[in-house]
């Protein structure tokens, strides 16, 4: 996607993405410290990242104010490789994709948008172009 295509649109609403990433981080690390090795810990550890990914997709598609092809391409670039890796290179260790790789990619995705946002008023859209 080029900048021209996106500059018409308003800036991406980024705060929900940051909030979702924060929630994923909390789910991964806080129960481990507060209630270690309990059902709460395990559920948050294993379900937090995929739920976070789902929320991130909802945010990007419907709440982030992204227009144009990037609205659909970015989710595809996040979800399809995850499925592909889980079925191939990570077959039998697919859980690693869910609990470690998904948060890593979410952090790169949202982190990149945040960093770009400090330098560019349209911030995240150009960032996505580069990222994708």
């Amino acid at each position: 996607m080029s900048l021209n295509q996106t500059s018409e649109s308003s800036a991406i609403r980024l705060w929900p993405g940051i909030g979702i990433l924060s929630l994923v981080a909390i789910a991964m690390f806080v129960p481990r410290l507060v209630v270690p090795q309990t059902m709460v810990h395990f559920i948050s550890m294993f379900a937090g990242p995929p739920l976070g990914l789902l929320l991130a997709l909802i945010w990007w598609l419907f709440l982030a104010k992204v227009r144009g092809p990037m609205r659909w391409l970015v989710p595809a670039f996040v979800v399809l490789p995850a499925i592909g890796l889980a079925l191939t290179l990570y077959k039998s260790t697919e859980l690693a994709v869910v609990i470690f790789a998904v948060p890593f990619v979410l952090a790169i995705w949202v982190g990149w948008l945040t960093i770009r946002g400090r330098h560019d008023r349209r911030f995240s859209v150009s960032g996505c172009s580069l990222q994708s």
């Binding site: 670039f77 260790t93 890593f104 990619v105 790169i108």
Partner: peptide, 22 residues
């Protein structure tokens, strides 16, 4: 995609007892 490319180059060898990944 770059991030996924990096993930694809990694092999996951399980967890430590405190859930740190190998």
């Amino acid at each position: 995609m770059i991030a996924w490319g990096v993930v694809g180059q990694l092999r996951f060898d399980g967890l430590e007892g405190d859930f740190r990944p190998n």
